[in-house]
Design a protein around this nucleic acid. Structure first.
Lengths: 146, 146
DNA sequence: GGGTAATAGTTGATTTTGTAACCAACAAGC
DNA sequence: GCTTGTTGGTTACAAAATCAACTATTACCC
């Protein structure tokens, strides 16, 4: 395993970002998967509804940059488990408003608490200033701010 | 879309890291996909061989934290396209050494150049010091250093 | 040396994702 | 009000990822 080229893969940002994202999602993923049998898109939808209270599939998709088919399926799964309700918008009958049921709220509160402590644990790798800078840089890379 | 909970998803590191990783991989992905019909694992294997010259599937898997079935199939695809050769290790006939063919080397050099300029473009969002700090923090989150 | 466990890598079945086509409701122009 | 285009969301089919089981070979160890 002698180097024949000095390009450093371990510093290549797309690679590095993916490794960090994967590693830092692992333990959290384990929790929502084991505890609620959820997929990645499921908890993201759950969190959006938990945070914003009432949204349409489209709004969630735009906010989290998730394709509409993935949202559609996650909403189905969550509706099947009675974690959310769908109600048609009467002024535009194409779209429907999603809201968490009490069971959904409970799941959200549980996972939200996990997420908060999980995030603190990750941030504890750094000083407060570093962590803030990291989030800012990530938001910029994610195109969430300019 | 009024907030009913003050948890900030957009600052939750696993979420943020994934968004940044996805966004910052997009254009590069387009290139290896369009230009060589490669998948994510394919270019990672290609890069490992391009950088280190000769590795076994297992070594690549450990280095990039990719599951062996994914590696196995990526190696198959790359071998089918004559981008690499496999030769059995004669002292341990279970494993085989992978090496790029000239065609594989050419593809690697091409993509490596793209990767380098792509990385610079991403890093240009920040000052030199910030970028270095970012990489360091990501390596730490990825468990690549302690 | 013979039996058992471990390892490198492959294969097959199942689940999840991605892509395109689709349906129903709405909007705009005429 | 009819046609054409757009939009929110679902569905069908193909591609890819995951997980478990499998083969072949080597290591362990009594």
């Amino acid at each position: 395993m002698t180097k024949t080229d000095d390009f450093d893969l371990r510093n290549f940002l797309p690679f590095l970002l993916n490794q960090a994202a994967e590693e830092s999602s692992l333990a959290f993923q384990q929790i929502y998967k084991d505890r609620y049998g959820m997929l990645r898109t499921d908890w993201r939808v759950l969190f959006h509804l938990g945070i914003y209270g009432r949204m349409t599939a489209k709004e969630i998709g735009e906010s989290a940059r998730i394709h509409k088919t993935k949202i559609s399926r996650a909403v189905q799964r969550l509706a099947d488990r009675r974690f959310l309700t769908r109600t048609r918008d009467e002024t535009d009958r194409r779209s429907e408003h999603l809201m968490l049921t009490p069971a959904g709220e409970a799941a959200y509160r549980d996972l939200q608490a996990v997420a908060e402590s999980y995030d603190s644990r990750l941030a504890a790798h750094f000083t407060t200033g570093e962590a803030a800078l990291l989030r800012m840089m990530l938001r910029r890379l994610a195109g969430m701010e300019r």
